[in-house]
């Protein structure tokens, strides 16, 4: 492989979106911001998928991140967008660290279903907690940037800019991490764990680390989603939410750290288009497009760009 072009591409996209964002209609800003939030979660899933692990319960951390951010605002009146995101990330990372001791022992379908079980327990608890609005959830206060609240017309753009910046940093760090020896262990673990152990590396340790990273990213995404959407509810922890994240992961492919964000954006567009043109059969459109991607682009949307680069 020639020079690593990913950081440059990332910076280019960041710049392009920061500039064009000022001229885009408001609704696209929101669409892109939500896609970035989901992209962060998917970025974490991608790390796990690289070593062959699929978490059917990533919504757990997405929800923890969102509720951490929401409760910080509700209980302490914190509204700084970076504080909220850090809180979401820290809360999810911490839970991920603790649960990781258990989950890092599991593989294949058992890993997936155990993580699903944990997220459903959180869902059950939240539904029962009337102080947090039960299934209706609660409203998240509008966030501020360094104590300032941007003018109405610029709120969406500011949130988008913050999201872009955060996603950029996260993608860059993950890209770096995937290049380290620990990061490169992923595909080895996927292929044959016993050989990894014979080489003297600890697969369980490596998976634990990846699990915590994925949890923290999901928490970050959840907090971002909470501040963007302005409302959180227990459905964020429900298994259908996890399913959506896996959907995007497969749609995107695991080729590059840009893929998750691209996948999330494409998913958002497909969904909203399907909602618009066929409100009665959008599930069919969604399922159909997933099938098409799996059949014709087995490595996800990302293979489109890789293929072109090689040509």
């Amino acid at each position: 492989m020639s020079r690593d072009r990913t950081p440059r591409t990332l910076a280019l996209i960041l710049l392009a979106l920061l500039v064009s964002g000022q001229f885009l209609p408001q609704w696209t800003l929101f669409l892109v911001t939500v896609a970035l939030a989901k992209g962060l979660v998917v970025l974490g899933l991608m790390i796990l998928l690289r070593c062959g692990l699929v978490s059917f319960g990533q919504a757990l951390y997405y929800c923890i991140g969102a509720y951490a951010a929401g409760m910080l605002g509700r209980l302490f009146g914190a509204s700084d967008v970076f504080t909220l995101m850090l809180a979401g990330m820290a809360a999810a990372g911490l839970v991920g660290f603790v649960l990781g001791f258990l989950l890092a022992r599991y593989r294949s379908i058992f890993f997936g279903l155990l993580s699903l079980a944990v997220s459903m327990i959180l869902y059950g608890l939240l539904v029962k907690t009337e102080a947090l609005g039960s299934t209706d959830g609660f409203h998240v206060l509008p966030s501020t940037l360094f104590g300032l609240r941007p003018a109405d017309a610029w709120v969406r753009y500011t949130v988008l800019a913050v999201a872009l910046l955060v996603a950029f940093i996260a993608a860059l760090l993950v890209h770096r991490y995937l290049g380290t020896p620990l990061g490169r262990l992923a595909s080895a673990i996927k292929d044959n764990e016993i050989r990894v152990e014979y080489m003297g590396a600890s697969a369980r340790h490596a998976i634990h680390v990846k699990y915590v990273i994925a949890a923290a990213l999901a928490g970050l995404g959840g907090a971002l989603a909470a501040t963007t959407v302005g409302h959180i509810d227990p459905e964020m922890a429900y298994w259908t939410t996890s399913g959506e994240f896996i959907f995007i992961t497969i749609l995107a492919g695991t080729g590059n750290v840009i893929a998750p964000f691209l996948g999330a954006l494409v998913f958002g567009v497909i969904q909203t288009v399907a909602f618009g043109i066929s409100p009665n059969t959008w599930q069919m459109v969604l399922g159909g497009s997933l099938l098409v991607v799996i059949v014709f682009l087995p490595n996800g949307l990302w293979s489109l760009f890789r293929g072109r680069k090689a040509a």
Binding site: L49, V54, S108, I109, G112, G243, I246, F247, I250, N280, T281, Q283, M284, L286, G287, G288, L290, L291, I294, P298
Partner: peptide, 24 residues
């Protein structure tokens, strides 16, 4: 020939489609 997880997702896609077929 595909990965177990990918097959799971294929069946999920089929499930979504069948939901609407049933509705039709």
């Amino acid at each position: 020939a595909k990965d177990e997880v990918v097959i799971l997702l294929i069946t999920y896609a089929l499930f979504l489609i069948l939901e609407d077929v049933i509705k039709m």
